[in-house]
Design a protein around this nucleic acid. Structure first.
Lengths: 130, 130
DNA sequence: TTAGTATAGTTCTATATAGAACAATACTAA
DNA sequence: TTAGTATTGTTCTATATAGAACTATACTAA
């Protein structure tokens, strides 16, 4: 449900070249610079095979580029294009808007506490080895 | 991620006739008895078109039955079969196990507080009209 | 060296998911 | 009654998602 709200906000903001999941991929690329597909998988919790297909579409949209790594010919470095960089501010605006909707009526202390517990739960799930 | 842990637990418990999403559908049917497809959609937050396909598979597995409603010929009542009823205990066991994993290290008070905040967030998202 | 193993990404396949358009049926106001 | 509107579920289509099998490359121990 929150995924659908996020995509609705992106569209309302005039962004129709990428969706929520693709936004998450762009986000980790903006934060980390170039990344391998395996690294993107770890940071987004998406399977390699999911990413192959997703990156195909993002490459077709001109959002990312695949750059073969000369040091390790098994690896491919993914990097964002200038076009994608142009969407960063809108993405941040949508992210902030999303938080406002999500936490409407929450105090700052409540948000901090809630996110602390969320991180505990994520660690608990990671322990199970997904 | 939590969806994947849930499906992993179902398999470990020997349940391979339904997955997490189908389990949620069975759960609302166990709780409410017969339901129309629209009602199941509201209770599970799944789209009608998603449910048509999902219920097709569940019907093929012998988990549910489609019963035409004589009172309103647009509606179809979905009801669980005896086979599906036989899985209720295992489903509950998996649900409990899932909670244990999720909330490992949480006090009862922390769980109550966290779930209270979760319900607030769900209401906030519902206000946005997904 | 080389044989065995590990890693990176793709392909193939199955399922999950939703939106738009649709047909059948029910409801409602004149 | 009937004409217009609302509802119920399906179909069609596109995308998202992951697991298994696969290819190419890199690493490691003898």
């Amino acid at each position: 449900m929150s995924g659908r709200v996020f995509e609705k906000l992106l569209k309302e903001c005039g962004v129709d070249v990428f969706n929520g999941a693709q936004g998450r991929i762009l986000y980790v690329l903006w934060e980390h610079g170039q990344l391998t597909i395996t690294e993107i998988g770890h940071l987004t919790s998406l399977a390699k095979s999911t990413l192959t297909a997703m990156l195909d579409r993002m490459e077709a949209e001109g959002l990312i580029e695949r750059i073969p790594d000369k040091k390790n010919r098994r690896q491919i470095l993914i990097s964002v294009t200038e076009k994608a960089k142009g969407y960063r501010e809108k993405y941040n605006w949508v992210s902030d808007k999303m938080s406002e909707i999500f936490y409407d009526g929450f105090s700052d202390a409540e948000i901090i506490e809630f996110e602390k517990q969320l991180r505990r739960i994520i660690r608990n799930l990671e322990k199970e080895g997904v």
